[in-house]
Write a protein that binds this DNA or RNA. Sequence first.
DNA 1: AGACTGATTGGCT
DNA 2: GCCAATCAGTCTT
Length: 175
Amino acid sequence: MYKPVKRLSAEFFRCDVLEVAPALLGKTLVRHYPDGNTMQFSITETEAYRGEEDLACHASKGRTPRTEVMYMDGGVVYVYFIYGMYWMLNFVTSHKEYPCAVLIRGIDNIFGPGKVGKMLQLDKSFYGENLATSTRLWVETTKNEPQKYIAHPRIGIHYAGEPWVSLPWRFRIVN
DNA sequence: AGACTGATTGGCT
DNA sequence: GCCAATCAGTCTT
């Protein structure tokens, strides 16, 4: 049965990041490029960062100019530049004053958040982009059923220590 | 004003 | 497994 494709509303992002992160798997990420082209990608891997108490979350160091957007209501974009090379794409979730975000680690056959950001041609101007109203980046539902996934520990956060390095907060589609 | 670090990637040992 | 590339944000002086 056909189900119309439609953009995810802000409400989709305004619940627990541990619900939103796996729910984004299989959803369609749409990018309208400056050259006029539009491309769609299926989200294949996500990772959850949850509040100041999560020592792997950037907000664990408190509210700063960089993390400010994470303290907004869910449904906006958090991008940051890292290792002098990569723009990382995150969606802010939950509600005001509870800084949580989902890192997009994989889309289609692209594995790795650095490569995702490169493919999407992200830059600082996407900081705070509203996913409900943006004309260049948003997420749509698909006609597919919810995707099966496996949860794994998060990558590249050894500095956070236990229990954060071991929590299965990375979600990956399985066939 | 200067030093350090990192939610990565790709290349080399 | 190790390490360089490369720089904004953050912390220290």
